[in-house]
Simulated assay, not measured.
Amino acid sequence: MKILILEDEENIRGFLKINFERNNFIVIEASNGREAIEKSIKEEPDVAILDIMVPEIDGLTVCKILREKYSNMGIVMLTAKGQDLDKIMGLEYGADDYIVKPFNPLEITLRIKALMRRLKGHDNVDESITYGPFSVDSYSQTISKTQQPLDLTPTEFLMLKNFIKNPGKAFTRDELLNIVWGVDFFGDAKIVDVNIRRLRTKIENNPSEPEYIETVWGKGYRLRK
C-alpha cells in the first residue's frame, strides 16, 4: 500500500515515514500542497495523510482536489488540538478521518489500518443487494440509485450499504462508528453527522428535507422503510 504524507515539518514527516515503513507501507513525502497534488497524480497513493497548515496550497484544498479526482483514495487530515472547524471542514471536503496532533504512533497506525480495511471492502459477503431505488454491488464496491452510479467515498459506501441492508433499523452514532469506522476508532462521534450530511447531498433530491435517510431524534439515523 502506498501512503502520501503531506507535512511541512521535516521532523514530523520523518517520524511518520519511519513508522509507516516499519509497517510495510511505501511512503511518498510532500512538504507543500502543490507537491502533494503532483505526486498524487504521478504515484496514485492508496491513502493520503494531509496536514492543514502547509505552504503554497493548504491541506483542505488538497483534500478537496484529491477527493474530486480519486473517489476511492483514503484521506486523513492532521489537525491541531482544539481546531474543531478544521476537522469539520476536512470531513466536508471529503476526508475519511482526522487525527489530532500530538498523536502517538500506535494510534495513527491503527487508524490507517482501519481505513485500509474499509478501502479493501472487507465485508463482501453480499454480492448484490437491492432496496427501493438503491442497488449495491459489493464486488465492484458501487451503489446505484435508479441505475445511476453514485460517486461515493469508501466511508460513504459502507455507511449507505449498512442502511440498505437494514431498512427501518435505527442506528445510534456509536453503532455506526463501530460498523463503519471500527471499534478501534478514537475520534469524535460528530464524524457520523458530517458523513450523513455529505451522503444526503448525494442521494437525496432535497437534502434539507431527506426522503431516504431519516434522523431519529434521541437515537441516530435510519433508512426510511
Score class of each variant (00 low, 15 high):
residue 140 S to V: 12
residue 168 G to R: 08
residue 145 K to I: 06
residue 119 L to K: 00
residue 110 L to N: 14
residue 151 D to S: 15
residue 186 F to V: 15
residue 139 Y to S: 14
residue 181 W to Y: 15
residue 109 T to V: 13
residue 146 T to P: 01
residue 153 T to Q: 03
residue 191 I to F: 09
residue 104 N to I: 09
residue 180 V to F: 04
residue 155 T to W: 01
residue 112 I to L: 08
residue 187 G to H: 09
residue 142 T to F: 08
residue 161 K to V: 03
residue 143 I to L: 04
residue 165 K to Q: 15
residue 102 P to N: 10
residue 120 K to A: 06
residue 159 M to P: 05
residue 135 S to C: 05
residue 183 V to Q: 14
residue 140 S to D: 12
residue 101 K to S: 14
residue 173 R to L: 08
residue 184 D to L: 13
residue 103 F to R: 10
residue 171 F to A: 05
residue 182 G to M: 03
residue 114 A to G: 14
residue 136 V to A: 04
residue 115 L to H: 00
residue 177 L to D: 11
residue 176 L to C: 14
residue 104 N to S: 08
residue 144 S to G: 05
residue 183 V to P: 02
residue 144 S to P: 02
residue 97 D to A: 01
residue 181 W to K: 06
residue 156 E to S: 09
residue 141 Q to L: 13
residue 187 G to T: 10
residue 127 E to F: 13
residue 128 S to R: 09
residue 141 Q to S: 08
residue 119 L to R: 00
residue 181 W to F: 15
residue 135 S to R: 07
residue 103 F to D: 08
residue 150 L to N: 10
residue 102 P to V: 09
residue 130 T to V: 11
residue 181 W to Q: 02
residue 106 L to H: 11
residue 160 L to C: 07
residue 120 K to F: 02
residue 105 P to L: 14
residue 127 E to K: 14
residue 146 T to I: 12
residue 144 S to E: 12
residue 170 A to D: 07
residue 107 E to N: 10
residue 182 G to F: 03
residue 139 Y to D: 12
residue 108 I to Y: 08
residue 115 L to K: 00
residue 123 D to F: 05
residue 128 S to N: 07
residue 117 R to P: 01
residue 146 T to E: 13
residue 124 N to P: 03
residue 115 L to N: 00
